[in-house]
Design a protein around this nucleic acid. Sequence first.
RNA 1: GCCGACGUAGCUCAGAGGUAGAGCAGCUGAUUCGUAAUCAGCAGGUCCGCGGUUCGAAUCCGCGCGUCGGCUCCA
Length: 641
Amino acid sequence: MSIELTLPDEQVLKLESPLTVADAVGAIGEGLRRRAIAARLDGKLMDLHTALTENGRFEVLTDRDEDSLAVLRHSTAHLMAWAVKELFPGARFAFGPDVENGFYYDILADAPFTPDDLTTIEQKMKELARTKVPFTKRSMGRDEAVALFSEQGQNFKAEHIGDLPEDEEIFLYNVGEFTDLCGGPHVQNTSIIKAFKLMSVAGAYWKGDEKREQLQRIYGTSWFKAKDLTAHLEMLAEAEKRDHRKLGQKLELFGIKEEAGSGLVFWYPKGAVLREQVENHWKAEHRKRDYQLVVSPHIFRGELWQTSGHLDYYADDMYTFEQDDQLYVVKPMNCPGHILIFQSDLKSYRDLPLRYAELGTVYRYERSGTLHGLLRVRGFTQDDAHIFCTPDQLVDEVEKLITFSKELQETFGFVEFKAELSVRDSQNTDKYIGSDEEWAEAEQALRVALDRVGLEVERMEGEAVFYGPKIDIKLKDALGRLWQTTTIQFDFNLGRRFNVQYVDADGQHKHPYIIHRALLGSIERFIAILTENFAGEFPLWLAPVQVAILPVSAPYRDYGQKVYETLRNAGIRVELNERDEKVGAKIRNAELQKIPYMLVVGSREMEESSISVRSHKNGDEGSSPIDDFVKRVLDEIAAKS
RNA sequence: GCCGACGUAGCUCAGAGGUAGAGCAGCUGAUUCGUAAUCAGCAGGUCCGCGGUUCGAAUCCGCGCGUCGGCUCCA
C-alpha cells in the first residue's frame, strides 16, 4: 500500500507502507530527520516513531517551531516524573502537561517537596537524560490499563481513565522506569532534554477541585538551547525588577499596611499624583465622548442589594454592618447606584443613549490567598460606566466602547490588544438570565462591533457571566505580557430586577439595554500595569516628579529656588534639592527616583540665567535658557508622549 | 479558603537557646563641591502578635496575623 503526503510546498510525497513518521521525514531529507522533533498530519501532532497509515498534509516540526517546544516540555515533565519516582518511590502521579514557557507535574508525595528536593530532582533528571532513553508508546485496553495503574498504586491515573470518553483509545508512554497515561506526542529520546530548570513547588488540587486531594505541583521550564533557557531566566529577572510592589516601595508610590488590613492601599503623595493624572485624563476623555460623570455613595441599604441579587449570591464576600436595626452594605459594585440615578426621573427614548460614568471605589472581601499587590485588592476604584440604550443603538454603542478602550489605552503607550468574546455555555442555558433572542442579539451586536473595529477576537464558549455576554480586552505590555483591562458586559438581569424603563416613541414603557463597562479595569490595577510596563520610568505627563533642580552647592540655592518657582508657576511638578551633598550624589538620587529631568545649576548657569539639562533617558544634554526648557517640558507634557 | 516558604531598625538583609548586628536611609557637625554615592559622630528594635517548653526564647513548639509562590475564586 502506498501513502501520499502533501508537504507544505504542495509537493506530494509517495511512500510505501509500512513506515513510521521518521521514515517519511527521512525521505524528505536526512538532515531534516536529525533535526525533527515531531510531525503534524492534517494538523494532528504525532511523534516520530508513530506508524503512518493515512494520507494527508504533512508538516515536520524542528526545534524552531513553537509547537515543538510544547512537545519538549511535555517530555520534560515525564522525565521529571521518572526522576521523582526514582527518588520518592511512594509518589503518586496526577497530571503533568506542558504550559506556557514550561511544564508542571502534580504529585502526591509522602511529604511536601522542599527547595532542596527540587535541586536533587533536577540533578537526577540530568543524570537520567544523559542515558539517552527512548520514549515509547503503546496502546492498551481500558480494563488492562486501569488494572496496571491500580496495581502500581497510581490511583489518579486509574481514576482518570474512567473519566475519558468511552471511545477514546488508551495510550501509555514509557520513559525508563516511568509509565504514564498519555496521548503524546513526545520527543524521541531523553538526549534532547538538556536546557531545563525546576522553578517552584506549590499546592494544586486534583482535577482543579478544592474539595479533592491537594497535590504538590512542581513547575519547571524547558528549552532546546541553553541560551534560550538563559534568555528566559533573564526575562524573569527583568520582570522581577519591574515588580510594581517593589517599585511602589522604592519610588514611594503606595503601600499596604498590615495594621490597616490586607488588600487595602495607601497612596503616598507621589502615587497620588500618578492616580490624579490617570483620573484627570480619564474624566476629560469621558466628557469628550458625551458621558455624564456621577457620584454615588459608598454604602447603600441592604434592601437594594437584595433587589440587585448580590446579597443572595455574594453575601459572604461583601462588607456589611448594621445601624439602627438597618443592614448596610459597603458597595461592591456601582451599578445599583447608577440605576437609581437613572430612575430619578422618567426617561424618554430621546434621552438615550445615556452614559453614566464614575470612578467608583468598591470593596469586596477577596479570599486572603488571592491578594496580590495592587493587582488583586479588597478596596479598589473601578473606572466604571453604565450605558442605557435602545436595541437599535446597541451596535454603535459597543463599537464606540471598543474604540474608546483602545484610544484610552493607547495614550498610555499600549498599542497591541487582544479581545475575547465570552458567550454562554450552549449545553447548559438554564443558569443564564435572559431569553435566547436577547443572547443572540447581544452576541451579534458584540461581534459586529468587534468586526467594525477590526480587533482580533477569540470566542470563549461558556465564559459569559450568568447575566449576559461580554467582551474582555487585554493589552500587551513592554515585556509581551497580556493584562486584562477592559470589560464590556451586557446585563439582562439588573434592568429586570430594578424594573428600569424608558418611554419609547410609541408611548410604551420599555426596558433599555444596560451595558456595564470598565476600560482600565481598576485604577489600582492599571497603575500596577503602568508601573511594570514602564519599569517605573513613567512618561513625563505621568511622572510624579517631572523635574529635579540640583544646585551644585549652597551658594546657588537661591538661584535654584528662582528656577524652581519659575517651573512651579508654569505648572510643572518640580523638586528643589537643597541638601548638603555633592552634585553627583544629587544626580544619583534623582536617577534612582527615575525623575525624567534634572537641572544642574551653578555659577555658569546663574550668570547666563540658564540651566544645565540632564535627562533620565539621555544623560547630560548641555545648557539651555530657562524659557526654552519650560516650553520643551510643557510641550512634552501636552503631547502625553 | 487550601498547600508550602517566609516575617529581625524606615528600607535591604546577616545572626540561630545565654547582653541584638551591617549597609543604606534619618539626625548632628564638618565640607561648598559640576553630571550615578564627601567625611565623622549620634540615634534607631516588644526580633509580627499571643500562649507554651526552659534557669533563660528573636532562636524550639502551638495558635493567630501578615507577606510571597501556586491552587481555588474573581459580580
